[in-house]
Amino acid sequence: MLELPLVKGDPFHHVMEAILDLSDVAHVVCTTRGLNLLAVDTKHLAIVSLLFPAEDFKGYTCDEYISIGIPIRDLVNAIRCGDDKDTITLKVGEENFGTITLSFVSPEKNTVDYEFRLVDAKLERFRLPDRHFLRSKYQGSVKMPSVEFRRICKCLSNFGDEYGVISVTDEDLTYFAKGTDGDVYVEYKQQEEDTTIFKIDVREPVRLAFNPKYLNTFAKVFTLSGQVKLFLSKTHPLMVECKIGQKGRIRCFVAPKVEP
């Protein structure tokens, strides 16, 4: 049995809204320890992974291992219909396994229940590379304010949705996007005095081409946290990470684009 309390505008809802146009299904694994969500875009170029430990989820109840495929559009449509003040609970029970119930309770105790079919109740358990593996593959990381990151992603995506480049050296971080009528460059210099807000950490310079559309999609999710951290590799997907709550985190991966 699973009971997942949700609030309109909470990180879970935010992630669902963000990946609405990228993927049809969110693969969710719940255990007594917490929730893991994984969604892959239809072209297999971007992945979002969300980890919510049970202690960060007030009212979270799960007494067994549950692996479900949630139809993202159905869930988002239902949440959008709810009121901001409603208490929302996502339920998967033993009797109705194969369906999901989303219950909305207003402050006046009026209720609305949505019931929809899970995409696939018996999904395989996905394994993402662990933190140590990932760290060994990345030659550089950059910590920066998430609001600033979102602004850049929006700017790059507006300019050129298809081709962008992130370059990092121990002195600066640059973003570049190629548009149809011109190019855009954004440059950040490492400030020696204050590394709490912006910090570059590189073993060797990295240059990575990517599709700005995906980063722009994910960037709004990262504003749930004050800081965002980018991990760059010459050969592996770009990873962007932010912390949610005490121990939760969101990670997005964007496949590198082969340079034209």
Partner: peptide, 14 residues
Amino acid sequence: SPTQKTLDRFFRGH
């Protein structure tokens, strides 16, 4: 729907 193979391929890089 993705499979573990899709994910492995994704993370293996290019």
